[in-house]
């Protein structure tokens, strides 16, 4: 029985190696200019509206550029899948790789393979690092926002909402998925700002896992605990809009007025937040910028056509803040 297995396996391997080509290409000429470029994009998944918007935007941008073809791979939020996808891209001999890494570490092996294959790797939206702290050697650039900064301006927006009031003011922090770099960074930013003043205090802090329903469920429980302990909650700072939107339902069901009794600030800038702001049920939202499609096309063209790398490794994208004041006007322009 086992003999048969080995024979079969050996035969299969032999057949493949006879018919297949080798991988012995060394670094080619310096200019890799071609008529058409194929770009492989490994996306985290489709776990939130913002993420889906990011994917859609990428696909639309590439579709509009006839010179570029995008190979899209969704990793369903697993790092293992992303590593396998990049290997496939290398095997498919793509011209460039765009990666939005689900976690920050563990890419060493596959990035070194990519380097060997001479395809530039661009990091988008989330950053990564290598063991030797030399991520810049393996990737061309990182295009993305500063989540620490996003956390800081979100925190500031909430504090500003209480500018006319006396402390102490208790608020709730709804965190993103435990361990996600965006949650960690936004949390850092938030605590940076909160640490500098003591009027507004974070009384409760829990994870809402970036989902609407968990945001609602957790907020419900917190409101009840607060009530039992005699604490009055005046504000909510959520790492993402959809958690805040879920939580605002819990607030409404508790008989309070979201946006009025409890001021709400979130991050992402999804349409739901704008609609709520237009109604006065939401205080502010920090935009999580998009635009990766055109940006990556621009940079890849530079690299492959002209061998020109972007000056700074970190291509920073700006976060805009939207509040009740300017939300209504901006609403028609929000695509997602």
């Amino acid at each position: 029985m086992k003999k048969a297995c080995f024979i079969l396996l050996g035969l299969a391997l032999l057949c493949q190696s006879v018919f297949a080509g080798g991988e012995s290409e060394q670094t080619g000429p310096v200019s890799r200019k071609k008529d058409k470029y194929v770009v492989g994009f490994s996306q985290v998944g489709s776990e939130s509206e913002w993420r889906i918007a990011m994917s859609t935007e990428m696909q639309e941008a590439y579709a509009a550029h006839p010179r570029f073809t995008l190979i899209f791979s969704d990793a369903q939020q697993k790092q293992e899948n992303q590593i396998a996808a990049i290997r496939n891209f290398i095997q498919q001999k793509v011209d460039a790789i765009v990666l939005c890494p689900v976690v920050a570490t563990g890419w060493d092996a596959v990035l070194s393979e990519a380097k060997d294959s001479n395809s530039p790797v661009l990091l988008v939206n989330r950053t990564a690092n290598t063991v030797g702290n030399d991520i810049e050697k393996y990737t061309a650039c990182f295009i993305g926002p500063d989540n620490i900064y996003a956390g800081e301006i979100a925190a500031q927006a909430l504090i500003d909402a209480f500018a006319k009031e006396q402390g102490p003011i208790n608020i709730v922090e709804l965190q993103g998925t435990v361990g996600a770099s965006s949650a960690v960074d936004r949390g850092t930013g938030i605590h940076n700002v909160f640490g500098k003043q003591n009027k507004v205090i974070i009384k409760y802090s829990q994870t809402g896992d970036y989902t609407r329903s968990l945001g609602k469920q957790v907020m419900e429980s917190i409101l009840k605990s607060a009530q039992a302990e005699g604490v009055k909650i005046r504000g909510l700072l959520a790492h993402s809009d959809n958690m805040a939107l879920g939580a605002s339902q819990a607030i409404a069901e508790a008989g309070l007025k979201p946006g009025v009794d409890i001021k709400i600030v979130g991050v992402d800038g999804v349409r739901g937040a704008f609609e709520a702001m237009a109604e006065g049920k939401y205080t502010a939202s920090v935009e999580n910028p998009l635009g990766f499609g055109n940006k990556t096309i621009e940079i890849i063209t530079d690299i492959l056509d002209n061998n020109k790398y972007p000056g700074e490794w970190w291509v920073k994208l700006k976060n805009d803040v939207y509040t009740e004041a300017n939300a209504k006007a901006a609403l028609p322009n929000r695509k997602y």
């Binding site: 489709s46 609407r212 959809n242």
Partner: peptide
């Protein structure tokens, strides 16, 4: 019921 409660349909997380 879930969609009615959360007032949204979230295909990923429901």
């Amino acid at each position: 019921l879930i969609a009615s409660e959360v007032k949204a349909a979230d295909a990923n997380n429901a």
